[in-house]
């Protein structure tokens, strides 16, 4: 590595750093947890908060299955350290429904059969929620381009685009 060659770690790496207490607002509720510094937001959600709707696909920011909204913006939770999001508002797929009613995107994905295996779906829906909030995509081409961070290996793309258009009120 560029800057690391000459210096050895000061202490034994085995003396793992202590866990760091953090507070997140997850789906509107305060969540206090203690995590090791290298815990990703994805792992914190799944392993500490039991919110397993957010999926681990590639774990490298390439597939989008782990997409959640942080302070209203869609990000890859696999490439985010939980400790860096202290105080942030996190919305996962579990937090989209309101009063027992599916979010319009969830309903639209059902209406349009916008999945097959379903593994990418929670990421697709959270990403689409971010896309709608951004307000940049108007046409099908623009939806495709701005959803390109979400891979669907079943190839449900035409139905995903149709579902998003329905939720945008452009069906």
């Amino acid at each position: 590595m560029t800057h690391s060659g000459t210096t050895k770690p000061k202490g034994p790496i085995a003396a793992a750093p202590e866990k760091i207490p953090i507070t997140l607002i997850v789906n509107g509720a305060e969540a206090k947890l203690s995590v090791a510094p290298w815990t990703t937001l994805l792992d914190a959600l799944r392993d500490y908060l039991d919110l397993t709707g957010t999926k681990k696909g590639c774990d490298h920011g390439q597939c989008g299955a782990c997409t959640v909204l942080v302070d209203g913006r869609r990000i890859n939770s696999c490439l985010t350290l939980a400790v860096m999001k202290e105080g942030a508002e996190v919305t996962t797929v579990e937090g989209l429904a309101r009063n027992g009613e599916l979010h319009p995107l969830q309903q639209a994905f059902i209406d349009h059969d916008a999945f097959q295996c379903g593994y990418c779906t929670s990421g697709q829906i959270c990403s689409a929620a971010g896309l709608i909030a951004e307000g940049k995509a108007k046409t099908a081409d623009e939806i495709r381009e701005l959803m390109s961070g979400n891979i669907c290996r079943c190839g449900a793309y035409p139905n995903i685009v149709a579902a998003i258009q329905q939720a945008m009120g452009r069906s």
Binding site: M1, H3, T7, H60, G61, T80
Partner: peptide, 22 residues
């Protein structure tokens, strides 16, 4: 000197996961 800055983390955390950055 064996520390790194992290901002967005999109490249650095990826490299750490692959044991390329340590």
């Amino acid at each position: 000197p064996s520390a790194k800055f992290i901002a967005g983390g999109t490249n650095l955390l990826d490299l750490i996961k692959y044991d390329v950055a340590t």
